[in-house]
């Protein structure tokens, strides 16, 4: 749990997940091209994501390909934002109350 949470807490790593989500599996250099960052720093972020189980790494030829692995997000999704859900549900209730209330 804490590994996944720590992995998500960083904006660069969230951006990496977004890129892998939108563009699918890709080599590390293609990911690096997207960032204004030295490749060792990027590799470090990818390692954190890999340790958290959020990406998989596969060598193909001379390149390493990374792919998104959303499975560990399941446990985050299970408890993510109960308060936000609370407020969204209450706001839906507010809408109903207003709809049933005569105008002044």
């Amino acid at each position: 749990m804490s590994d996944v949470f720590a992995a998500l807490a960083n904006p660069t790593r969230r951006e990496l997940l977004r890129l892998l989500l939108e563009r699918g599996e890709q080599p590390v250099q293609q990911l690096a091209d997207h960032f204004d960052m030295r490749r060792p720093s990027l590799s470090e972020h990818l390692r954190v994501l890999k340790d958290a189980g959020l990406v998989t790494e596969q060598p193909i030829g001379r390149q390493r390909f990374y792919a998104l692995c959303p499975e560990p997000l399941r446990e985050v999704a299970d408890w993510l934002g109960p308060y936000e859900r609370f407020w969204r549900a209450r706001l839906a209730g507010l809408r109903e109350v207003l709809d049933g209330l005569p105008d002044e």
């Binding site: 998500l8 904006p11 997000l73 999704a77 934002g81 308060y83």
Partner: peptide, 19 residues
């Protein structure tokens, strides 16, 4: 456990597609 550290844009646009 009662909130998310994720910023709003990521949460509203990327997170739903991840889930």
């Amino acid at each position: 456990r009662t909130f998310t550290l994720l910023d709003g844009g990521w949460r509203s646009h990327v997170w739903p597609r991840l889930t």
